[in-house]
Every structure is written in C-alpha cells, then in structure tokens.
C-alpha cells in the first residue's frame, strides 16, 4: 500500500512540477516590469508556503501513528522470533508461523551490519529493520496471509550479500 501511494504521489507531483516549469519557460520571452512580478510572486509564494507546510504537517501527524518499532502490546502477546544475521545467512529461532500470529522479530548480527527485509510470496517487502552487531532491533509484523515469506539482506555486507536468504512458512 505504501509503495503504491509513494509511486502515485511522486507521479502526480512530477507532472505538477513539469507543468509549472514548462509554463514559466513558455512565458519567459516577453519582458515585463519585475516589480509587478515580485508583488504577485511573493503573494503566490506565501500561499504556496502555507499549502506545502500544511501538507507536511498533516502527513507528519498521520504517518507517526503507525511506527513499525512500536508493537501493539495491548492487542495480543507477540510470538518472539530471534534472528541472527551472519556473513552470509540468517539464523532464525522459528521458521514456521501461523496466520494471525503477531510476530516480534528480534534482529541482531554476529559480524557486520546486515539488513532484515521480510518479503511476502509476491516479493513485496512487508517489514524491515537493520541487523547490527552488538544491538538488537525489534520489528513487529502480523501475518494475515499464508505462504512462504523470505528474509533477504537489505544492507550491503560483502560479496555474497545478495545470496543471503531464509524462508519462513506461514500456515493456515
């Protein structure tokens, strides 16, 4: 959902920016007094500032409601899964889960920085965090669909980085 939303917002904004720059380009030829342009321009700029600032404020408010590192403990007790990354693979304490399980992945690394990317069977990322030496990051994900999920490395860690892979089965 977030991927699609990002793509659509970027496309729409890009079209808007292209239209603005092309319009100004097409209207750059005939010279008029800059004082008039400034008076009108500064007014438009004020409106533009209010619009951009308001959009940013609203986006901040709504998106901060859904932080991936804050588990909904009140909802249910999570199923703990320990994940340890090592050049070049993942050790997991549990590789079979059930639909409806609310998993808490506790992710760390034994050597260098790695990334923990959880992909569904359509190869779409559904959750991620960093796998760091000396630290444990916890990320939460509720499995709502059965299938084979794959953990892939999302932080460059050496020559076999792209081969780091571990499957998790989610059954009905």
């Amino acid at each position: 959902m977030y991927q699609q939303a990002s793509w659509m917002i970027t496309l729409l904004f890009s079209v808007f920016v292209i239209l603005i720059f092309v319009t100004v380009l097409l209207k750059s030829g005939k010279r008029v007094d800059y004082g008039k342009i400034q008076t009108k321009g500064y007014f438009i700029r004020s409106v533009w500032f209010v619009v951009v600032f308001s959009v940013m404020l609203a986006a901040t408010y709504f998106t901060l409601q859904d932080l991936p590192f804050e588990g909904a403990e009140a909802e249910e007790t999570p199923v703990d899964v320990q994940v340890t990354a090592i050049q070049f693979g993942f050790d997991v304490s549990l590789d079979t889960l059930k639909v409806g399980d609310y998993a808490a992945f506790h992710v760390t690394s034994k050597d260098v920085n790695h990334g923990f990317g959880l992909f569904d069977d359509q190869l779409t990322i559904v959750a991620q965090t960093q796998a760091m030496p000396e630290y444990t990051n916890t990320v939460y994900y509720k499995f709502t669909k059965p299938g084979t999920y794959t953990i892939l490395c999302m932080e460059y860690c050496g020559m076999a980085h792209h081969l780091m892979k571990r499957e998790i089965k989610v059954t009905e």
Binding site: Y2, T10, V17, G115, V126, A127, Q128, M154
Partner: peptide, 20 residues
C-alpha cells in the same frame, strides 16, 4: 522534482518498506 521522492522516503512508515 528530486525532493519529493526523497521526502517520501524519509517518512518512517514508508522507509519501512522502501529503505535500501
């Protein structure tokens, strides 16, 4: 035009599925 996808990616919930 480059600022917007950058800002989008800096949104935590989006970075969660877009980072790297």
């Amino acid at each position: 035009i480059g600022v917007v996808p950058a800002i989008i990616d800096a949104t935590i919930v989006i970075n969660h599925v877009m980072h790297n």
